[in-house]
Simulated scan of single mutants.
Amino acid sequence: MTHTRPPVDAPAPPAETVVSRPRPRAEPRDAFRLPLLSFLLAGCAVALVLGVYAAEHEPAGYSLDVPGFSSPLYVKAWLTTAATVFGVVQLLTAARMHDAGARPWTRTLHRWSGRLAVVLTIPVVVHCVYALGFQSGSTRALVHSALGCFFYGVFVTKMLALTRRGLPRWVVPVLGGAVFTSLIALWLTSSLWVFTSSGFRL
């Protein structure tokens, strides 16, 4: 009688060692709130310091004049007008900056138009804060003084937000819109008022 040996199972191939990699830790959806709040507080601090200094210090009543202009009032009016023109350029380029068919220089023009707009307002704010102080003698003057403080506060907030990654896409456009709107309002309450009440000249 023949005995058949039971089949021997072939050894199973060694299982592949699976190395589990730690998953990147996802940031909470509201992780941007604290940085954004700190940026807003910094902007509010800038606006508050400008307003308090302009209101509390004794106005000097004079400022540096620019040759070729009839008065410091018109220096302010034309500098603010030039800043507003660059602000409009920045608004138009912002709408085209992310377009696939935009010109390569669109982004550069956007940045430099914004920089020039702010630089042109610096002599104006120095004159307003140092020479005139915070004006509240009329509704126009009060609104204009408050807008000047708000403009620099929201500008600082926007610049800080530009350096922070991970913010929602709406943050910078909203801040940029606030900067542009306040600049237009400043022009309406200063330059346009000067041109309509005192004449259109240098």
Results as ranks from 00 to 15, higher is better:
residue 66 V to M: 14
residue 45 A to H: 03
residue 75 V to H: 10
residue 81 T to V: 03
residue 159 M to A: 10
residue 108 T to W: 15
residue 69 F to C: 05
residue 74 Y to H: 09
residue 71 S to N: 04
residue 168 P to I: 12
residue 124 V to E: 01
residue 46 V to A: 06
residue 167 L to F: 11
residue 53 Y to T: 10
residue 90 Q to W: 14
residue 162 L to M: 14
residue 113 S to D: 07
residue 159 M to V: 09
residue 172 V to S: 04
residue 60 A to T: 04
residue 165 R to L: 14
residue 143 V to D: 00
residue 156 V to D: 07
residue 99 D to I: 00
residue 121 T to K: 00
residue 129 V to S: 03
residue 103 R to G: 10
residue 52 V to H: 13
residue 69 F to M: 11
residue 148 G to R: 08
residue 174 V to G: 02
residue 134 F to R: 00
residue 167 L to Y: 11
residue 160 L to W: 00
residue 138 S to Y: 00
residue 78 W to T: 03
residue 147 L to E: 01
residue 84 T to Y: 11
residue 144 H to A: 05
residue 66 V to L: 15
residue 67 P to D: 09
residue 162 L to W: 08
residue 71 S to E: 08
residue 124 V to F: 13
residue 83 A to P: 06
residue 132 L to C: 02
residue 59 P to V: 12
residue 142 L to S: 05
residue 47 A to P: 03
residue 95 A to Y: 15
residue 145 S to C: 04
residue 91 L to N: 05
residue 79 L to K: 08
residue 83 A to R: 08
residue 166 G to R: 03
residue 119 V to W: 12
residue 137 G to W: 13
residue 68 G to V: 06
residue 84 T to D: 01
residue 81 T to Y: 07
residue 161 A to P: 04
residue 60 A to N: 07
residue 91 L to D: 00
residue 129 V to C: 08
residue 88 V to C: 09
residue 155 F to A: 09
residue 155 F to V: 07
residue 162 L to D: 01
residue 166 G to S: 00
residue 160 L to I: 00
residue 97 M to K: 15
residue 92 L to C: 03
residue 59 P to Y: 11
residue 165 R to Y: 14
residue 143 V to M: 11
residue 172 V to Y: 11
residue 88 V to N: 08
residue 112 W to F: 07
residue 125 V to E: 11
residue 113 S to M: 09
residue 160 L to P: 01
residue 78 W to E: 04
residue 56 E to D: 12
residue 82 A to P: 11
residue 95 A to F: 10
residue 164 R to K: 06
residue 127 H to G: 00
residue 164 R to N: 02
residue 85 V to W: 10
residue 45 A to L: 09
residue 84 T to F: 12
residue 98 H to S: 08
residue 94 A to H: 04
residue 73 L to I: 14
residue 51 G to E: 01
residue 62 Y to K: 06
residue 164 R to E: 04
residue 51 G to S: 04
residue 160 L to C: 09
residue 76 K to V: 02
residue 80 T to D: 08
residue 85 V to F: 12
residue 95 A to W: 15
residue 169 R to C: 00
residue 130 Y to P: 01
residue 100 A to N: 11
residue 165 R to S: 07
residue 132 L to F: 09
residue 96 R to M: 13
residue 143 V to C: 02
residue 145 S to F: 09
residue 126 V to C: 02
residue 160 L to S: 03
residue 104 P to T: 02
residue 121 T to R: 01
residue 64 L to W: 15
residue 60 A to F: 02
residue 104 P to N: 10
residue 112 W to H: 03
residue 175 L to N: 01
residue 152 Y to T: 01
residue 161 A to T: 00
residue 118 V to I: 15
residue 79 L to W: 13
residue 59 P to I: 10
residue 133 G to W: 13
residue 51 G to V: 06
residue 131 A to H: 02
residue 62 Y to N: 12
residue 138 S to H: 00
residue 56 E to A: 09
residue 146 A to T: 07
residue 151 F to I: 14
residue 87 G to W: 02
residue 55 A to V: 11
residue 149 C to I: 10
residue 161 A to I: 02
